[in-house]
Amino acid sequence: MPQVVLRVAKPFMNIGRFTILMSSAFMSLRELKTYRQNTQIQMVRIGIESIPIVALAAAFSGAVTTVQTAYQLVSPLIPPKIIGAVVVPSLTMELGAVVTGFILSGRVGARIAAELGTMRVTEQIDALEAMGLNSIGYLIVPRVLAGILMVPVLYVAACVIGVLGGVAAAELTGAVSSPEFILGAREHFDIFGPYFGLIKSFVFGFLITAVSCHIGYFTEGGADGVGRSTTRAAVMSCVLILIADLVLAILLL
């Protein structure tokens, strides 16, 4: 094949390979029993162990959103409780899921790619396969499943902690009292917000883990390749989160 054709075809080949990988993963779901323990371990690594950093990021996002909203409210005609009405939906609909997603891109995406990449270049994946194990089922299903199941959990944590961070910032800066903050949040509360965020977090959880698994699983070329995969997984996860964020907003709002 000429070089140019190869260049153009590459993204499609990647998407095709990704699709095949995911359908293989899906097919091996019926063997889930075999991978139960692995799924557990991944849920702890991806979910539980990410709680502190996600909480930290969420608390600051909530606080910053509050302070900046307060700063932008210059008109005396707008009551300060509006801050609550801006911050809470911002967190539930956007920041809760996206901040969690970005944090996990770095923390989980890179880690998955590094793990699987190392396993690939040191032939551990071949070793699994050679034993007669389904390496996709064994390595990818637990990670993607853990992503889909645990990122929503992290999202909920991020929202709650983000709101608390916002309330704390509001109280500390004196922008608005917490009862007023909550009053504003309640008045403008739209039940769709949390569900929308939850849907996003499912999608992000899938994207981060699936794409990182894909990149890691097909790592080529030694330690160097592992490094490349790691970076690519983090970057691709972030990019896909941004795209998915927009697409979901267009589709669901």
């Binding site: 557990q40 371990i41 849920m43 702890v44 979910g47 539980i48 709680i51 809470v88 199941l149 645990m150 929503p152 959990v153 909920v156 944590a157 929202c159 709650v160 949040a185 309640r186 509360f189 039940i191 949390p194 939850l198």
Partner: peptide, 24 residues
């Protein structure tokens, strides 16, 4: 591990439910 995951999932579910009720 089972305990950790179970607690996290249940807690998230409860908080999600209560959070929505609180905001509503």
């Amino acid at each position: 591990n089972e305990l950790k995951i179970g607690l996290a999932v249940v807690l998230a579910g409860v908080v999600f439910y209560l959070g929505i009720r609180f905001l509503r």
